[in-house]
Design a protein around this nucleic acid. Sequence first.
DNA 1: CTGAAAGCGCTTACAG
DNA 2: CTGAAAGCGCTTACAG
Lengths: 341, 341
Amino acid sequence: MTTLRDVAKATGFSATTVSRALRGFDDVTEETRRRIEEVARALNYRPHQVARKLVTGRSGMVGLILAEPPKAFEHGHFFELVAGLSMAFSARGLDFVLHVGDGTDTLATHERLVARGALDGFVVTFPVADDPRIEMLLARDYPFVVHGHHRGDARYAYFDDDNRDVSEQAVDVLAAAGHRRVALIAGPAIWPSVAARLEGFHAAMARWQLPVDPSLIVHGDTSAAHGVEACHSLLAPGRDRPTAVICCNSLVAAGVYETARRRGLSVPRDLAVVAHDDVLPQVRTDALDPPLTVTRLALRDAAEPLADLLVRRIAGEPVSTLQVTRKAELVERNSVSRLRD
Amino acid sequence: MTTLRDVAKATGFSATTVSRALRGFDDVTEETRRRIEEVARALNYRPHQVARKLVTGRSGMVGLILAEPPKAFEHGHFFELVAGLSMAFSARGLDFVLHVGDGTDTLATHERLVARGALDGFVVTFPVADDPRIEMLLARDYPFVVHGHHRGDARYAYFDDDNRDVSEQAVDVLAAAGHRRVALIAGPAIWPSVAARLEGFHAAMARWQLPVDPSLIVHGDTSAAHGVEACHSLLAPGRDRPTAVICCNSLVAAGVYETARRRGLSVPRDLAVVAHDDVLPQVRTDALDPPLTVTRLALRDAAEPLADLLVRRIAGEPVSTLQVTRKAELVERNSVSRLRD
DNA sequence: CTGAAAGCGCTTACAG
DNA sequence: CTGAAAGCGCTTACAG
């Protein structure tokens, strides 16, 4: 491996000058720089990252730590996020470290990596209320960015969807079409995004002066299997059935479609369906039958902003300027029809 | 951050002794060690990885570099491999760096990471004939392990499926059931695994004294869409149709099932289907209708051996002891029926 | 059994 | 504009 000293010897300049020439400082003669660059190239010199890290204190690496291996139904989510982040960080010259835990020790893992100075910063996903990872990172003043955020918590950098608005848009579409009994198949209650969706749901229903039937709100995971299960319970015989259902994501919606079909119910004639679409590779919501009306926000599009925010946070920007929310786009297709009354 | 020196000062011992005590060398008094460990714990000392790396020459990191973002249909494969490798390396105390390229510069990326001494070793996936990555790594004598291998190439460590045997088992099942016109929907011709599958196919057909019709061998990617397309061409009107088809993976088989159904053909009555099953999250081959007969080899199970081989290679073991092949398990279900003649 | 010294490959004040 | 020196935090011969 060629070192700085090798280049210094070969050119006759000192290591100091070589270092500065190569880093583009302007206190080096143009000619000197040219000569040094030429030799460095000829010798195929590359600065040793580890040495540089030791002196600068920066590791050039950022990490994503998952508590446990994603569930099988989450593979699309994992794929979009991990591939996207890796590319986004690569483009910024940072190495992306992925740690998939075994479910026992996320916090310990974060702490170990923090203490070892191994990473310059973290991406935290699926924050929960009073998330211990976030508290730990905050306590140590370690740079990190959160995908999602706990409402009202302004202590950290985050990139979040406007989940309140997501539900409001969904309710608006349905209410405008005359629906009054609207069900909500929501995600895990522990996620802040789900709380925000719930808030938006209640707010919009109130705005349209529609009653909310608590038995029409179901929590669970984001799998098609959960969609099937939730839909079955919603359509149970003898119940006052909803005329419309809002699904927390496209997999759940696929489950709802399947269940409705099995029950001999037609979408949208007998049941209107609206879902939030993260644009996962498993389900193309435009290819469903009928094409699904969605609030859309591609998960993949979160990678670039997330990387950008983390880089800026590492550079020392205050968190107050690093809190970004984006609104979903409503894509009306054929899964909602006007309720005849 | 607590450093070695801090611990040295606090205990009154030298940095040398502290280092050795903490690393468990046996030339330190039991009492000294105890005292040092106690103080180190109290001070929450963790050796700084970067510094350690600089002196030992080991980075404690290994990497997987993907040329380009996986296609949408590959997300299950990506998921199994990446999550599996991350967990396997974590369990061995190594950080897993994932680099997803933009399709323009895989080799350059490998070279940069090699030259910077950033990684201790690599996992190389989807090797192709005369793979430039492999040649580069070999030329520099850099540790790496390949998932798959080019037949007869004994220059590197690898973990591979016995792809020849995969095809032989598939043909055996079909031929034993009386099938003579057997089609093969194969993967991309550039992969060595595909060449091995082809070899096994020809060998087994010859063993059963069955003619091979070249027009019954179709190459393409491993998506369901390709399965649909290939099946359509195989069943084109006016052709002498195959009675059985072997699919390179379960997604392709799903496409074949769908096409057969659309054509009004019944599996297995009109068409027998056997596929290779990597056990991806997208397709549960036992849940298809009818349940699919497969040669099975869970992709996820490759992660541990791959990590193990790379660690041993990094430790200096010769490649000759690090070349592992495993055989697929035949799982007979209901997609093959006896051909009545 | 313990410690002083050198060094891993770089960067960055500080002089000149 | 250029260089000698110190130092990032550790490990490892080498003495004693």
